[in-house]
Design a protein around this nucleic acid. Sequence first.
DNA 1: CGGCTTTGTCCTGTGAGTGGAGAAAGTTGG
DNA 2: CCAACTTTCTCCACTCACAGGACAAAGCCG
Lengths: 396, 396
Amino acid sequence: MRRMTARPANAHQARLLKLLRDGGPNSRAQLGDQVDLSRSKLAVEVDRLLETGLVVADGLAASRGGRRSHNIRLAPGLRFLGVDIGATSVDVAVTNAELEILGHLNQPMDVREGPVAVFEQVLSMAAKLRASGLAEGFDGAGIGVPGPVRFPEGVPVAPPIMPGWDGFPVREALSQELGCPVMVDNDVNLMAMGEMHAGVARSVGDFLCVKIGTGIGCGIVAGGDVHRGTTGSAGDIGHIQAVPGGRPCACGNRGCLEAHFSGAALARDATEAAQQGRSVELATRLEANGALTAVDVAAAAAAGDATALDLIREGGDRVGQVIAGLVSFFNPGLVVIGGGVTGLGHTLLAAIRTQVYRQSLPLATGNLPIVLGELGPTAGVIGAARLISDHLFSPA
Amino acid sequence: MRRMTARPANAHQARLLKLLRDGGPNSRAQLGDQVDLSRSKLAVEVDRLLETGLVVADGLAASRGGRRSHNIRLAPGLRFLGVDIGATSVDVAVTNAELEILGHLNQPMDVREGPVAVFEQVLSMAAKLRASGLAEGFDGAGIGVPGPVRFPEGVPVAPPIMPGWDGFPVREALSQELGCPVMVDNDVNLMAMGEMHAGVARSVGDFLCVKIGTGIGCGIVAGGDVHRGTTGSAGDIGHIQAVPGGRPCACGNRGCLEAHFSGAALARDATEAAQQGRSVELATRLEANGALTAVDVAAAAAAGDATALDLIREGGDRVGQVIAGLVSFFNPGLVVIGGGVTGLGHTLLAAIRTQVYRQSLPLATGNLPIVLGELGPTAGVIGAARLISDHLFSPA
DNA sequence: CGGCTTTGTCCTGTGAGTGGAGAAAGTTGG
DNA sequence: CCAACTTTCTCCACTCACAGGACAAAGCCG
């Protein structure tokens, strides 16, 4: 099957496509209310979009007291692939043009196995989704990787936790394999885009999205756009000094945030606590599973284990301290906490809030919500789909 | 005399005005090379601008092998007023439309005397500049204040060091007094705009501009635009925690950057060192002047005084540590250091650089210049002039 | 003085966009 | 069942933005 070949011919068409993506099916009249174009001009552009096949008119809406309107919607056959490569697992999802998830697969996998192995995995997951009848092919794909990316080229640069990926032409390679356009970004940025599209950050222009998983990163959205920085490493807050003279970090410094709190650090601390007999709850789990993860700590905390709660609180204090600084600096309108540790829930959130509200200036925190992400593990893949749709729904 | 009444009628005209402002006089042909318009369309827009009087054609340029071109330039009579209100002094300058400083006055003054007293001072300085024949009137004024500003309204909000200004309608009041349009911003943002216009940050899209004076602030430029944050307090880094459990700060917390290093903190530390007999150089100056300022410390350091050098180095370490975090977070392409302490020069800069290059990730610092501002005390007033010219050179 | 170059103007054709008239397709009330 | 009113959508004529080529003006050089 031939996939989406057309692109919007001008800014008006691009605008209309994005309205239909974000707002769902609309009548011509409703679209007209949103785009500040005359009805005639609007009709012309809609007709052209219909000709290209990017949008279709299917059926009539219920009357609102007059002539019934035609439903204009994005072509129902459009399919985007969203890929979120984490440090320890891969998420792949298919969405329609409205970025609704039609199918979602998750697979544990170590990113350090390198691009070739991971690609094989991703492609087989994509094939499985296609085979299940959700898509006959993909019109575009977005992919997030856990490290800095030279965005225009779609190439990871100097990624600390995935050294084998340095300079690997992710965009080009995946585009070749899938036969469709591909865009690549940092996984944290995609999480931010996901929450902006369909999560807690809808209609917030400036916000921070802190992702705490194996490592720690921060998506920065300024004026509705993702800020990627000069070399694509913006948001890399894992190595900000949180504890002067603190623990040694893999990066060579001491006291980095990531060394004191992250999924990996938490697992290590919990294991240590279990081995030292400071927590029966954790020790039991360690014996049962052979190793501890953030999930175990969350479960122990939920069961009321004091040591687990302390670990979470202490970690939250560290992250909160760093976030407090970022809030003073950036003055966001919202802070979203997400990533693997979301399961730590309110204990973590409370610690972070305490630090931020105490340390940042009242003017910056006065009306600042600090909340958990709404989309969980789907934020990344939705953000990935949004990334490629933003690209395809822009004039060529 | 009637001042500038016209505004550009469309985006093309706005573009042309800004080209003429930033690039000086140009021929129609040269303009055509920069704007991607047909020569005919360009001629039409230039003619319309000539009609409005915003630009004039004066004289012919030298031939470059063919017909000589007309010089198109911004109206030579246009005058902007740039005002930079610091914590302890006021700068007022007149510029032409190209933002070149024609006259500049500086006056010590305590901002805490309140808006009425400061306004009186500013107006009298403006009158003096006008009386000296540099301007018959002002076509617009930009003004910077040392605190957060609700930008669209031009009103300071909850400014810590100038409590009497909270909610004072600076924009409206000054506009009334001067009889011209006025824009208000944070002084640090204006310094950043100044360095972007005519200083070290020309043609850098993402950079940070750290101003160390009585307090500490940071101008944030992302994608060529100043980031002001949700409540206008972005860049307020003075109260980021630099030393856990450190000195008490006026804000109620401990260890704030500003408490450990700023013009005020440095003066206090130097006085203490002098009184404790740790530095002959500083003690001599204290006796001579009755009080010490950053300038004294700079002079002592220049004379080789070890205590003064230590103070500067220690302060630079603190600031450098905070900046290192911001660099990791924001990934700028340039860091500019400015403000009153610029006199501390290379000792300070070296300390900052050491910290940043050591603590931030190589990818973010690999090609990151950290330099002193180029414009010194004129950065603020040039930025102020640029602010209002950006406003006036945009379609109404 | 005649070719060549550069700058600036004029003119015409094309296409984008507006706004009004009115057709199409409903609902509601008598 | 029909008239009056609403909402949606289409058609058409007119205006204006803009490009691109032809051409005039004004300089250079040999």
